[in-house]
């Protein structure tokens, strides 16, 4: 599962520490930077955050412009005492209240992370196997025999068998239906392609 990186912009040490301990309760999350003075906001450029949590009192026109200009792919969460303080120019994705319960905050963050991950583009070449092996696997999943694959790719049947052994060893999947599911999950083939 990909990591979600957070940056906190908040003056209060106590609130920052509290938020960090909360966020890092969620697996695969990390607070990569904390900013306690809005003047240092330029520091953000040194990082590659997925989420920024910012105290809404710190936001003025300049900050708002800066955020919308520099951070296209970052989702901004406001931190405020009550609901009315949101600065309208920013596209808030969520608002966390200072008096909110732990569960309610965790729920909000979990939901944001879930949405982010399900919107992420899937990768097309799995890390586990080489490109050549992915070719072979694609053909196995499509239902071709060793001989057919050999003819298609201009290699010997023996080579196909060797590739198959390596694929099975690397993936820990032995059966053709299992390999087919792997191929579909990794977008090597489409569900509709299978024989």
């Amino acid at each position: 599962m990909p990591k979600s990186n957070f940056i906190l912009i908040e003056q209060s040490y106590i609130i920052r520490k509290g938020l960090i301990s909360l966020i890092e309760k969620i697996p695969n999350t990390q607070v990569i930077s904390q900013i306690d003075n809005i003047k240092d906001i330029d520091n953000i450029q040194n990082y590659d955050p997925d989420f920024i949590i910012i105290n809404s009192n710190l936001i003025d026109k300049d900050v708002s412009d800066y955020l919308s200009k520099n951070l296209e792919n970052v989702q901004v969460i406001s931190l405020s005492k009550d609901h009315n303080t949101s600065f309208s120019e920013i596209n808030w994705i969520e608002n966390i209240l200072l008096n909110e319960t732990q569960n309610s905050i965790l729920k909000k963050i979990n939901k944001l992370i879930g949405n982010r991950i399900s919107n992420m583009p899937q990768r097309y070449t799995p890390d586990e196997i080489s490109e050549r092996e992915a070719d072979i696997l694609r053909n196995i999943a499509l239902g071709y025999s060793n001989k057919e694959i050999a003819d298609k790719l201009f290699i010997s049947t023996h080579t196909v068998v060797t590739h198959r052994k390596n694929i099975t060893r690397k993936l820990g999947i032995k059966t053709v239906p299992g390999l087919t599911i792997y191929a579909i999950l990794n977008k090597l083939i489409d569900l509709g392609d299978t024989k």
């Binding site: 999947i173 032995k174 059966t175």
Partner: peptide
């Protein structure tokens, strides 16, 4: 048992959570 083994591995290693 082979297919069952594959199913387990797919869930453990490859299925998006």
């Amino acid at each position: 048992e082979e297919k069952l083994f594959d199913l387990k591995n797919i869930i453990i290693k490859y299925l998006p959570q």
